[in-house]
Design a protein around this nucleic acid. Sequence first.
DNA 1: GGGCTTTCTTGAACACGTTCAAATCCACCT
DNA 2: AGGTGGATTTGAACGTGTTCAAGAAAGCCC
Lengths: 232, 232
Amino acid sequence: MTDAEPPVSKGERTKERILQAALELFRERGYEATTMRMVADAAQVSLGNAYYYFASKDQLLQAFYREVHEAHLEAAEPVLQKERTLPARLLGVMLAKLGVIEPYHRFSALMFRTAADPESPLNPFHAAGAGVRAEGEALFAEVLRGSKPKVPDDLAAELPGLLWTYSMGIVLYWIHDRSPCREQTRAFVEATVDLIATSIKLASNPLLRPLQKKVLELVRKLNPGGRRGAGS
Amino acid sequence: MTDAEPPVSKGERTKERILQAALELFRERGYEATTMRMVADAAQVSLGNAYYYFASKDQLLQAFYREVHEAHLEAAEPVLQKERTLPARLLGVMLAKLGVIEPYHRFSALMFRTAADPESPLNPFHAAGAGVRAEGEALFAEVLRGSKPKVPDDLAAELPGLLWTYSMGIVLYWIHDRSPCREQTRAFVEATVDLIATSIKLASNPLLRPLQKKVLELVRKLNPGGRRGAGS
DNA sequence: GGGCTTTCTTGAACACGTTCAAATCCACCT
DNA sequence: AGGTGGATTTGAACGTGTTCAAGAAAGCCC
């Protein structure tokens, strides 16, 4: 991950400068408190110029998501190397996420406002967010792939998507967590991970077969073919 | 629904005028497209005066939620009179909701942006929305109370909250539903209601006892005592 | 170098939600 | 009637995200 080559054109350098200025301001002051004018000033650029590169404040936000996700990948890697059981892997990955986003607690409140917005790329249903989302799902697919008691294939096909949604739910909880060091969220994650592991274990039970089938059908319907309307 | 007595003070009449103007504009043009200045104009009042009665555009929105909820109650009543099984009652109530909100499809996109916002009263975790939420839960409690195969008490205590959250999820799905007449949402509701009914039936099974216990614990933790930090 | 197009940059403007000090209205008391 | 105090109303202002026409810079062909 060494950004060796310097950005080529002048425009790209300007864009990068604006982005970095925005990210730093977001970190320092939060999203809402950061003004496009501040970003422009910090990047030593006119207001209009910032809009030349980023069509909206939202696009700056999306760049932030990508950065967080990359940090999460890095933080999750040692866990995935070490742990072999599903609960341990999942727990480790989720705690890694909490660690990564901790500095952004204030900031991320807004993250979720936009996440639920139909126009937002973070929205689970929205096509434009397919990139962000697919990357998230890939991580959870990796969590599953490396865990020892193999998960049945039909379940394993849908689980990454479900776990990604789950992680969004955790973040939603985390945002509202006012306890010191976010310990409540941590406890919540432990409880839910345990629950998920138990559910997956039970899913193979014949008694639950009809229920499982229904759930899977439902999930597939919710998320048809992996992409719908993602064309344009 | 006969508004018999005329509002007493002049202030209250003005407030009502502003509210009605806002609701009509919301219906016609959606929330975002409706401007506080438009509302003020339509109510034949100055902009500042609108803010004298409604501290923010959001408060106008909340008034809208209340109206929708009351319409939902009315629409759900015949269903609750007639049906006696849980799936039928739940399905009826949910379809009633879909019917009530149908005219607001465009408008409601915003509903959910704010719903996920920590500051929004619609947010499941937020204290200020306790009123809206409690009313919603009351409806689902009624759904349970009148259904014939009684639901176990421990479950029945938590289910209204869960079902309310569920209904929020349905609305989220509905918002993104671009199918004609929102038929996909309808199908989705049918599937999920079926699923919920099956789950509840299975919940009493001894095999699932540990799972159920965990789930209930979790739900209680998520929603501690019915109110936390609701004091101020 | 001189013209041309494309890329980049600017600052002024717009409409928005919101705030506020001041003006006006109104009910009540003396 | 006159005045006192609270409720109501106003319009101008602020800072925001965003847009846009116009200018400057850079690349390119002759």
